[in-house]
C-alpha cells in the first residue's frame, strides 16, 4: 500500500515499533473513516433534499429547501433578527438551567444531610419527576405573567427535579466505608460532605448535567411556544402559523446546533475537571 507516504507517516505518528505503528494506523484509519462517513451522510441528506426541491419532486412550500433556509439564515443574520431571538432563548435557558442545577444540588445536599427529610419527601419527588413539567406551563404564565420569568421557571422546573433525584441517589451510593474512613480520622459531617460525598459524586453531577441540559432546553422552547413573544420557540410557532416553513426549519436547525454545543460544553467541562479517570 502507501506505507511510506506522508499520510501513513501522519497516521502513525508517535509509534514506537512497527507493530505499534500498524496498530495506530488501523485505529486512526477507522476513526477517520467513520468521521468522513458521518459528514458524507449529512451532506447526502442535504444534497438530496435540495435536489428534490429543485426538481419539483417535493413541495418546497411544505417541506422547505436547504438553499432557501440558507438564504433566510443569511438575511436574518444581516438584519440582526436572529441574534435577537437566539440571545433571548439562550439567556432564558442558561438562567433556568443553571439556577435549576444549583438549587437541585443544594436540595440534594439537604436531603443527604437529613435522612428523615429524604424518607419523608421521597414519594413526592418521584411523583414530581413523573409528571411532565411542561404541563405546568399555563399555570406559570398565570402566576408569573406572560413573559420571560415564566419561561425561566419552566426551564428550571424541568432540570431541578432530575438533578435532585440523580444526585441524592449518587450521594447515598457513595461507599459507606469511605465515610467510615473519614470518621476514623475524626471528621465532622460537614467534612464528610466536602471531602468525600461531593468529590465522589462529581461524575454523577456531570451525568445529571448532561440530562438536564437537554431537558431544560425543552422547557425553554415549550415556554416560548406558550408565551409567544420572542425567542427560537416563538419563531417556530410563528413560522408555523404563517406557513413560513423556511423559518420553522431555520429555527429548528439553530436549536439543534445550540443543543449540541451546550452538551459538548458540558463534556468539555467534565474532561477538564475529572482528571483522575
Amino acid at each position: 500500500m502507501f506505507k511510506t507516504g506522508v499520510i501513513y507517516q501522519w497516521l502513525t505518528r508517535g509509534a514506537v515499533t512497527a507493530d505499534h505503528a500498524e496498530f495506530l494506523f488501523q485505529l486512526r484509519k477507522r476513526r477517520i473513516t467513520i468521521r468522513i462517513l458521518q459528514i458524507a451522510i449529512l451532506l447526502a441528506f442535504i444534497g438530496l433534499w435540495e435536489l428534490m426541491g429543485q426538481m419539483g419532486w417535493i413541495n418546497t412550500f411544505l417541506m422547505s429547501q436547504p438553499s432557501k433556509i440558507l438564504n433566510l439564515f443569511i438575511k436574518m443574520c444581516q438584519n440582526g433578527q436572529l441574534y435577537h431571538h437566539i440571545k433571548i432563548t439562550l439567556t432564558e435557558n442558561i438562567i433556568g438551567f443553571s439556577s435549576g442545577t444549583i438549587l437541585g444540588i443544594l436540595i440534594a445536599i439537604l436531603l443527604w444531610w437529613s435522612d428523615f427529610l429524604f424518607n419523608l419527601l421521597e414519594p413526592y419527588l418521584v411523583i414530581l419527576n413523573s409528571i411532565p413539567k411542561v404541563a405546568l406551563g399555563p399555570v406559570m404564565i398565570v402566576w408569573l405573567g406572560n413573559d420571560s420569568p415564566a419561561i425561566i421557571v419552566m426551564a428550571l422546573a424541568v432540570s431541578i427535579i432530575v438533578t435532585i433525584i440523580m444526585l441524592i441517589n449518587g450521594f447515598r451510593e457513595v461507599e459507606s466505608n469511605k465515610i467510615k474512613l473519614l470518621q476514623t480520622l475524626g471528621a465532622t459531617k460537614k467534612q464528610i460532605l466536602f471531602k468525600v460525598i461531593l468529590p465522589a459524586s462529581v461524575p454523577t453531577i456531570f451525568s445529571a448535567l448532561k440530562v438536564s441540559v437537554g431537558l431544560s432546553l425543552v422547557g425553554t422552547i415549550v415556554g416560548e411556544f406558550l408565551v409567544s413573544k420572542a425567542g427560537l420557540g416563538y419563531l417556530i410557532v410563528y413560522g408555523g402559523q404563517v406557513f413560513n416553513l423556511h423559518l420553522v426549519m431555520t429555527s429548528v436547525i439553530i436549536l439543534c446546533i445550540i443543543a449540541g454545543l451546550m452538551y459538548y460544553f458540558v463534556l468539555l467541562l467534565e474532561k477538564l475537571i475529572i482528571k483522575w479517570r
Binding site: 476514623t184 480520622l185 471528621a187 471531602k195 468529590p199
Partner: peptide, 25 residues
C-alpha cells in the same frame, strides 16, 4: 485505624490521599 481495604480516594493523588488525616484534623 487502618480499615480492611485501602479505600483510597480515586479523585486524589497519592500525596493528597496521604494528607487526608492531617486535613481533617
Amino acid at each position: 485505624y487502618m480499615l480492611q481495604e485501602d479505600y483510597l480516594f480515586e479523585w486524589r493523588t497519592v500525596y493528597e490521599n496521604v494528607r487526608l488525616g492531617l486535613e481533617i484534623k
